[in-house]
Simulated scan of single mutants.
Amino acid sequence: MSLQLWLAYLAAVFVISGTPGPNMLLAMTHGIHHGLGTTARSTMVGLLAGLAVILGVSLGGLGAVLLASQHAFEAVKYLGAAYLIYLGIKTWRSADQSNLDTTGRPDASGAWARFRIGVLVSLSNPKAILFGVAFFPQFLNPQQAIAPQAAILLGSFMAIETGWMCIYAGGGAKLASWLKRGQRMRWFNRTAGGAFVGAGVLLGSFRR
């Protein structure tokens, strides 16, 4: 892989990853409710695992099959859209208070649940799906060894994505005390829930 191509890839990934979407919204929301450390150990690991699955599918050639099969594409699209809408409604109706234990620290008892949510949000994220099946393969040169190229691209992507997630989750953690005043948390939950629903509608209306 040429240095010029890699730098172009880094620039594109930096912008795409940093753009607000379901993954970053979930990182920020969980940062607010559970703190940066807990979010990093559960939610962010799940988000990255989901992204790894999408990119692995793309590398395995299944992304091209998915795009070629109308029925498979529609099934994946509507399942993802339904989950994002469900998560949006649940977020809208969620409690206004952060999930804290009696010591005032983020409750880590739901780590597996947060990991699972992270995986499912990644797998249903329209931006991640489009990146994995349409954008990512364009940087692979089929005339050269795929494994080294994939390692460079995947490693770069995961590093940039992790950095942005930390920024969003850390920003959310810093906003937590401010949002607890008055009705701010309620309105934040409604805004975040509406954004998840919007992402689900966007995914459901997407046409190849």
Rank of each mutant, 00 (worst) to 15 (best):
F131W: 15
L3P: 00
L51M: 14
N23V: 07
G198M: 12
H30Q: 13
A173E: 15
G110I: 04
N99T: 15
M1N: 00
P106W: 08
K77S: 03
A159M: 10
L25V: 11
K90Y: 08
P126T: 09
N189P: 14
I167W: 03
T91R: 02
M165T: 03
W187D: 09
R207D: 12
I117T: 15
T91F: 00
W187R: 10
N125H: 07
R93V: 04
N125G: 10
W92S: 10
P148A: 04
I167S: 02
M165A: 05
G110V: 07
G200I: 06
A75E: 05
G18V: 12
I89C: 09
H71P: 00
T103P: 00
G110F: 11
I85D: 06
L87K: 05
A82T: 08
G88A: 12
Q4Y: 03
L55T: 13
L140K: 08
V57H: 02
I16P: 08
L66D: 07
D107K: 04
F14Q: 00
E161T: 14
Y168A: 13
D107V: 08
R105Y: 06
C166G: 14
Q97R: 12
E74Q: 09
R116D: 01
L36V: 09
W112V: 15
R41N: 11
V53I: 15
I152S: 06
V197K: 08
Q70Y: 04
R41V: 01
E74I: 13
H33M: 05
L62H: 14
R184D: 05
G198N: 05
N125V: 10
L87M: 13
G204M: 05
F135A: 14
K180R: 15
I160V: 15
G118W: 03
A108H: 02
A192E: 04
I16N: 06
M165F: 15
A81T: 04
A64K: 12
A8H: 07
G80D: 03
A81Y: 00
P106I: 13
V15R: 02
L130H: 02
G88R: 10
P106Y: 07
H34A: 13
Q144T: 08
P148Q: 01
L7Y: 00
W178H: 10
N125F: 02
G172E: 09
Q183W: 06
A113M: 14
A95W: 01
I117P: 00
L84S: 07
W6D: 01
L179V: 04
A147P: 00
P148E: 03
A176R: 13
